[in-house]
Design a protein around this nucleic acid. Structure first.
Length: 565
RNA sequence: UGGGGGCUCGUCUAAUGGCAAGACAGCGGUCUCUGGAACCGUCAAUCGGGGUUCGAAUCCCUGGCCCCCAGCCA
């Protein structure tokens, strides 16, 4: 799949810059990369970065690398590498054979460090972490030089080699760049290049006990791979002078870094740290919980990659830090599903209807349209019989004026079925309606009235004898607050305080039309008048489970809300 | 108060010195065998103050507000 398929020619400040670089001869090819750290799952915010990286490469006929920035063995796991690759494949991204790891370059990075030591541009520091922080100064005061800053080159070389050999404990020493402790840019105040970590790395095992800091690895990795445009988060803007310094001192290929604003979405959190807390503290059922904004969660929820791409295309690329309305994402989810999801009938909160004048034991197979938006989706048969289920909220004993559904004496259409008129109903002791009695008009088979009479309401239904039972999980926004991160930590508040208690409702005993017996996990449908649903992997052959991706727009709910005030 | 970056309808994005445009949301309507979809209409913005110019969202000056940086995280 090409992510630019059907895309109107669009541009943005990054593409303009790339265009200029090509025109000026700064570069004569384009090569980008997506550099995730394998310490968690990818989320919708990463999809934006991926689309930009991959999209720019595609637009300019360039190449795209997937590179795992795995420089911190204590946080990274092979499980995350696999999950990230699966998510990227699902998005339709093709990195061909260019799957790399920062750890592939550990030896080369080590040699880069040696080179800087020899140039007198790096030194081994014996200060403790606390001391390093004190010496760094503050935002408004300059830092001061470490007493170890002017160690002779030979001593630095010796110490650094012994750091690699494992002679020292974690935290005992670090390698630092010798830049400027008085710089207004704190990233330039002799940043740490290497630290000692006696930890097992998911790829290099115990081969190393010193690991490069991200800042000493990222730019050089891009350089080694011949990346022309290092596209990244605004957060790295103030690191760019440091990357420039390393690249220039090392005298190696110099990519151009361009920063853009990360995605923020209302009613959710988009930071691995907080998503990890939701998982670890059990607020959700794992990284792929359908309420999570992770790609794994969205996939399980039933969101399509196409919906994600069209959403990304619409929000654009800029440097303005913004919060995109969740409603816009939901719009794109519905737009894609409306076009492609086949319709089925499913009654989520069933109440029985008995068609008193329909012959007992008779079954008719009526033709239903699979997708009114796509004729090629074809038709299917749905069985009709004397006893049916309809939604409990499609019947009212004493309906208000604008209620177009079933009520005593009212006639409605059963979708693709018959017109029925309610003649009576039965309630139990608690006042709950248990059975609704109707008569049908045999002349209206298929849902058309030969005399041209009209009904206001059309209801979905399933034949009681033919229905299959299912669990349905109704998902809603994970947070009730637009910005869950807007809390007062000092007052003891936490973002978890705003978790929507109704973000998951499990419905059992839902009645589905029999054709759904053939559905497979991952299949997506529109349950008519209810919303879009996706079969969950938890399903068993005799116990299907469906997740609600998103409800249909419901203007009746709006009318009802206004009436109630 | 050091360094870096950003301010256009409620929200996101366009307009590259020449009619401030589109999408979402909202509101109103048409149509409909999904109270869906589609369609039509409507509301609605250039952070403030100066300046340059025939003409400024855009250029200049000057205030304001917001975000990022003080991990041996990325």
């Amino acid at each position: 799949m090409s992510i630019s398929e059907g895309k109107p020619t669009t541009t943005d400040f990054i593409r303009e810059a790339v265009k200029e670089d090509l025109a000026s001869g700064r570069f004569d090819y384009v090569h980008t990369r997506f550099p995730p750290e394998p310490n968690g799952y990818l989320h919708i915010g990463h999809a934006k970065a991926i689309l930009i990286d991959y999209g720019v490469a595609q637009d300019f006929g360039g190449k795209f690398n997937l590179r795992f920035d795995d420089t911190n063995p204590v946080k990274e796991e092979a499980e995350f590498v696999e999950a990230i690759k699966e998510d990227m494949r699902w998005l339709g991204v093709d990195w061909e054979d260019r799957e790399f790891y920062a750890s592939d370059y550990f030896e080369q990075l080590y040699q880069f460090a040696i080179k800087l030591i020899k140039k007198g541009k790096a030194y081994v520091d014996d200060l403790s972490p606390d001391e390093i922080r004190e010496y760094r100064g503050t935002l408004t005061e300059p830092g001061k030089n470490s007493p170890y800053r002017d160690r002779p080159v030979e001593e630095n070389l010796d110490l650094f080699e012994r750091m690699r050999a494992g002679e020292f404990s974690a935290g005992a020493r670090v390698l630092r760049a010798k830049i400027d402790m008085a710089s207004g840019n704190i990233n330039l105040r002799d940043p740490v290049m290497y630290r000692i970590l006696h930890a097992e790395h998911h790829r290099t095992g115990d081969q190393w006990c010193i690991y490069p800091m991200y800042d000493f690895a990222h730019g050089q990795c891009d350089s080694i791979e011949g990346i022309t445009h290092s596209l990244c988060d605004l957060a790295y803007e103030s690191h760019r002078p440091l990357y420039d310094w390393f690249l220039d001192e090392l005298e190696i290929f110099h990519p151009r870094q361009i920063e853009f604003a990360r995605l923020n979405l209302s009613y959710t959190v988009l930071s691995k740290r907080y998503l990890k807390r939701l998982v670890d503290e059990g607020h959700v059922n794992g990284w792929d919980d359908p309420r999570m904004p992770t790609l794994a969660g969205l996939r399980r929820r039933g969101v399509t990659p196409q919906a994600i791409w069209s959403f990304m295309r619409e929000i654009g690329v800029a440097k303005t830090e913004s919060v995109v309305d969740m409603a816009l994402f939901e719009h794109h989810i519905r737009k894609d599903l409306n076009l492609h999801a086949e319709r089925r009938m499913a009654v989520l909160d069933p109440v029985k209807v008995i068609v008193t004048n329909y012959p007992d034991g008779q079954v008719e197979h009526l033709e239903a349209i699979n997708n009114p938006e796509d004729e090629s989706a074809g038709r299917r048969q749905v069985p009709f019989s004397r006893e049916l289920f309809i939604e409990r909220d499609d019947f009212m004993e004493d309906p208000p004026k604008k209620f177009f559904r079933l009520a005593p004496g009212r006639e409605v259409r059963l979708r693709f079925g018959y017109f029925i008129t309610c003649t009576d109903y039965k309630k139990d002791e608690s006042g709950r309606v248990t059975e609704i009695y109707c008569t049908y008009d045999p002349e209206t088979r298929g849902g058309y009235a030969p005399d041209g009479r009209r009904v206001r309401g059309t209801l979905h239904w399933v034949s009681a004898a033919h229905a299959i039972e299912a669990d349905v999980r109704l998902y809603d926004r994970l947070f009730t607050k637009e910005d869950p991160m807007d809390f007062d930590a000092e007052a003891g508040e936490d973002f978890t305080d705003f978790i929507n208690p109704d973000s998951l409702k499990v419905l059992t005993g839902c009645k589905l039309e029999p054709s759904l017996a053939e559905a497979k996990p991952g299949d997506r449908f529109q349950f008519e008048r209810r919303g879009y649903f996706c079969m969950d992997p938890d399903s068993r052959p005799d116990a299907p489970v469906f997740n609600r991706t998103i409800a249909l727009r419901d203007t009746w709910a709006k009318v009802r809300r206004k009436a109630t005030g």
